[in-house]
Design a protein around this nucleic acid. Structure first.
Lengths: 207, 207
DNA sequence: TCCGCTCTTGACCAAGCGATCAAGAATTAA
DNA sequence: TTAATTCTTGATCGCTTGGTCAAGAGCGGA
């Protein structure tokens, strides 16, 4: 064997262009979905030629999977930081606040996942059944613990988490509808945050 | 002028085939979205040839708009029947129950709209800003009235409606994720209904 | 400087898809 | 039955799009 094969280092240009591509891909995929987006759009959007883009990611699907994985970690961070040692109501309030602000500041990521799941989650199905399920189960157990201690109203933890996801991400995923119905006032998201935290807190505080 | 032009009557075959087409179109569009769906798929799915299908709907978009409009009315019926004369908590409980059951029994309609709005609501934007906004404003006013009478906890009615939409439709739109995380037990939807009604009722009941 | 490797691109291909058309089959009204 | 109308389809067109290829330009290490 002799020398160990040198691990293929990532070039400066490589790292730089891949970042450009992923950024543009998030933009385009979140707007048009996987099938609606075109490689040309992504290439133009980041100033590369189509063959050049396909030099870095050989297939359209490779770009898609890469941008999904690249975004997934950040998207789940708020749930990950739900602290079992914290005060229950406070922890959940913080979670809701963080989630809704994430929806406001990064709606494209929300739409990317929404579209992926809406169409069957074929690219991230394994992730959902594996790491995601584990994380959710872990956090659900914490919530169940809080309930058992009488520090939260009795409620199914999994469905509570679904409800928080649904309500917070709604403002990113269904933005045109929200805007159409409310007329998009400047305090929209602040009002949303206030309403949701209140709703959940009142719904969860033990009586 | 003479005789008035006879209004073009709709043939038996016409009515029959259009129904077939709309049914198949709901199936296909809800699964793949507008751009992801193909006219061939819809045609095959309802046993017609592609040119024959295009004889009834000249453009792909015409089919899409038709199936959207055809489904929209039913989808909003539950909100429409929110009764100002009813008991507030009871009315909202009934609304949530109806919505979640509609999501369970007709998830395809839910996904069709979700996809449409997620991608900018270009086909139904006008409807959202017009009739939908009117309906929501009307029902929001009813809820505001209940709050003013002290029969509901203070909460922004529009955002409350969004929260109900989001949580109930979540089970249709994000079904793969819900299934992956929960393992899809037989009492899933029953548990969802119970959790959501409880959450909203506790959150809304005046203290 | 020189050489090997990485990067870039214009041209091109095959497949898929929306849409058209002409011509024939079926249906309906008289 | 007959004639007009409606319905159906095989063939085909034009365009988009994912992906390939060969050849050249640029870059970095010796």
């Amino acid at each position: 064997m002799g020398e160990a094969k040198t691990i293929p280092r990532k070039t400066r240009i490589q790292a730089q262009n891949e970042e450009l591509i992923l950024k543009a891909a998030l933009e385009v995929f979140s707007a048009y979905g996987f099938r609606g987006a075109t490689v040309d759009q992504i290439a133009t959007s980041c100033g590369l030629s189509k063959p050049n883009l396909l030099y870095y990611f050989r297939r359209k699907e490779d770009i898609y999977v890469a941008v999904l994985e690249h975004t997934l970690h950040d998207w789940l961070e708020p749930l990950r930081s739900l602290d079992p040692a914290g005060e229950p109501i406070e922890e959940i309030t913080r979670y809701i606040r963080t989630k809704i602000r994430l929806s406001r500041d990064n709606p494209k990521a929300s739409r990317l996942f929404a579209n992926e799941i809406l169409h069957g989650a074929t690219a991230i199905g394994a992730y959902l059944k594996g790491p995601l399920k584990e994380l959710v189960d872990e956090k659900a157990a914490i919530i169940a613990g809080w309930i058992a201690e009488g520090r939260l109203n009795t409620v199914d933890p999994h469905h509570l988490i679904f409800a928080i996801w649904a309500t917070t991400q709604h403002y990113a995923d269904f933005e045109p509808q929200v805007t159409a119905v409310t007329g998009n006032p400047s305090d929209l998201m602040a009002k949303a945050e206030e309403t949701l935290t209140q709703l959940f807190v009142e719904g969860l505080r033990p009586r």
